[in-house]
Write a protein that binds this DNA or RNA. Structure first.
Lengths: 169, 169
DNA sequence: GATTTTTCCTTCAAGCATAAAATTTCTGCA
DNA sequence: TGCAGAAATTTTATGCTTGAAGGAAAAATC
């Protein structure tokens, strides 16, 4: 048993309604930013390229690995479940954008990579995507941008430390 | 025609790979924060209360309106489509947490409100939710918290201005 | 070498979310 | 009055996502 149990008790005893409300507001604001932007990106991917965001994300990962990725690696990188990846790759393969390849050394494993068509398609989408991001983020000053990058990193660390079952070390 | 068209041209002509990369990094970081936190909240809602986040969100809206809300208002507040709300309310009604009520003045409209059981359930979940948020956001200093609140507001404004079809005024 | 455990992937059932089309009801207007 | 159009909701088809269960292959253990 470590000091963490003491911290827990203190956290339960301490009541700070003001601080809690601020934290809640921040969470809601973060969520609305994220949703606003991702909804717009989804919309543009659909209208301009007839592609969904998850498909785009898969292709982005594969584009960085010309030799392909195992399905398990893909699901870990995208932080989604295995079953999800199976379906996404099914659909992308139907469209001829990716191919599944058996691993000669491990018959359980399957490697996926972009086809030539998939790679070409991704490069077009990535260029558009970058300009979209600039349209939406471009009104931030470089200073604000830097600050957000830092502060969100701090938030990420804070949140990761608050995960249930997180190791307090 | 305003000065904004001039800005647009300049934005197109200007090429700033460094700035664009920073913007992309910021977007990915924002997304990973948002996903990390919302995944944890979803997990805890499921484990502790056997409830999904969308259901929790609906109940949160209804809890603020004891007289109930029309389905259309609900879908606008939650920024989701009408069809989505129909299904969510179906399921919540099956569980006895909300009730649909016909509007006597407008036979097209339907008002939804929390039942007593739904209200009780929501109050329990909301209390837990607040402590979860504190566990994840509590390591941020008040200064960082304020700064994030401001900077995310600026991002929201920037992004809203970059929506396709957005009025440049 | 045989048995257990782990890893990798797929399948399944349920729920969430969207866009587009359909239904019912109301409103405005000629 | 009659009727065109708008508004509120539902339906439909499709796709994403999850958690849990299952099967096949590899690795670890005895």
């Amino acid at each position: 048993m470590t000091d963490s149990s003491v911290d827990d008790v203190e956290a339960l005893v301490r009541d700070e309604p003001a601080g809690s409300k601020m934290e809640l507001r921040l969470w809601l604001r973060l969520l609305s930013c994220s949703n606003l932007i991702s909804a717009e990106i989804r919309r543009r991917l659909r209208v301009d390229f007839d592609v969904t965001l998850p498909r785009f994300d898969v292709m982005a990962q594969l584009h960085r690995e010309p030799d392909g990725l195992r399905l398990g690696d893909l699901s870990r990188r995208m932080m989604v479940t295995n079953g999800n990846i199976t379906g996404l790759i099914d659909r992308l393969a139907e469209e001829g954008l990716v191919v599944r390849e058996a691993d000669p050394d491990d018959r359980r494993a399957i490697t996926v990579r972009l086809t030539r068509a998939g790679s070409k398609m991704f490069r077009m989408m990535a260029a558009a995507h970058e300009t979209w991001i600039h349209e939406m983020f471009g009104r931030l000053t470089p200073k604000t941008l830097d600050r957000l990058l830092d502060d969100l990193q701090a938030l990420k660390v804070s949140a990761a430390g608050g995960l249930r079952g997180a190791d307090p070390e």
